[in-house]
Design a protein around this nucleic acid. Sequence first.
DNA 1: AAGTGGTCTAGACCACTCG
DNA 2: GAGTGGTCTAGACCACTTC
Lengths: 248, 248
Amino acid sequence: MGTIRYLEIAGALRTAILSGEYAVGAQLPSESDLAARWSASRGTVRQAVATLAAEGLIGSRQGARRIVLRHERRHSFGELNSFAQWAEGLGQEVTSRFLSRVRRPATAEEAERLALAPDTEILAVLRLRLLDGEPTMVERTAYADWVAAAVEALPDDVRSVMDSLANDSAIVAHYGEHLIDALPAGSEDARLLEIRRGSPLLRQRHVSATATGRPIEWTDDRYRAGSVTFSVSNSAVATPLERRTGEG
Amino acid sequence: MGTIRYLEIAGALRTAILSGEYAVGAQLPSESDLAARWSASRGTVRQAVATLAAEGLIGSRQGARRIVLRHERRHSFGELNSFAQWAEGLGQEVTSRFLSRVRRPATAEEAERLALAPDTEILAVLRLRLLDGEPTMVERTAYADWVAAAVEALPDDVRSVMDSLANDSAIVAHYGEHLIDALPAGSEDARLLEIRRGSPLLRQRHVSATATGRPIEWTDDRYRAGSVTFSVSNSAVATPLERRTGEG
DNA sequence: AAGTGGTCTAGACCACTCG
DNA sequence: GAGTGGTCTAGACCACTTC
């Protein structure tokens, strides 16, 4: 069948953890236990627990049992690529509309981020996103020339641009890098978000690229302060500690 | 020897990528190539490339060679735990001083985050951090009761609290969760950072915990807007894509 | 000393990409 | 169809934790 063994095991463990079957701080069964219980090899079990470790749910130390670190599954940064997906997880109603879609030459930064020749024509999009009717985020996106036509063809109230591209054009975003900072609202930001000029905004910029590393879009998203919090957990797997005790 | 094979291979590949030997978009040698070249098994090679994938340097698709996604190594979120470590990477001079260290009962949120009984006495610390002499960040930390004494014993201008704890008390932080948002400066923030009240601040809150999941500290760091940008890259490994093409 | 996770090997089959 | 990465097995030895 199409079922992948280690994801099956990871899913069962995740369910057990999220349901509270294992308390925070509790020990997981040993790898050999799990291997026997699932009739799988130890390698497969290790792949399963590595998945959960990458999600920040469990942690490990050599020689000791794995322990549960958290019960909540954290919004992964993968979901940052899609405002719509993220909002759906919150159970809030999302609306959005394009305020403008114009072709113009790329700025120096846009050309750089999109790996295009300077002054290549890009599609600049301004979009307002609302959560339960409240203006929440202003999105400014530069789409690379080769996807511009596909984006222009989308209706004004499309739910998710990237989802639409994936379904219609077989363009699937795989990798991204996110830059997060704070800045004061400009006059356009203030007008659209119905706040005062200079009010704090949380900005998240990112590039989406195809599986082969070809940049698709460069986006500048600005959220009203208080409307959103980003969350990241660093597990030992993702960021191996290189700190030592007792250096001298 | 103490050398770990897969880290050795990963290190060599990382160096080759960062030095530009492989361009962005270029293909890496196949797993079997690498295995032969390093006289290692394919499993070990896979562990090596998985390390680089977690760093966001390379990407992969089944059936095709791995490709280089980026040249720069990104600040990992592990470094978020240490302002001092992060600033050192920038080559900037860091100074900081404790403005106050007082014991007081934990607030409801602090008790919750530190997994302590309500009203347990914690050590509340207010600290100003400067980068090249510029006030850059205000840090408010609540240390759990069982580390309070160790923190109180530190000198006023200690470079890094967590490093000091690691060296002196064998308390090593392993896991953390980071919450990132924006907010307007309060009056204390404004005074310390030498900005106007209501100016945008980038806030990063986190809990540090020991290897066994015991919380050590709960920190609220507020950065002047423009002084810092957080960067995260989501590799396919860390956040597997579950989006499909052509659903209908 | 026993148990457990970390590393490593040498195979195997499959799904997918690419020429 | 050949090449490549994704998954999986069944062993092995070592470093570390725990009792």
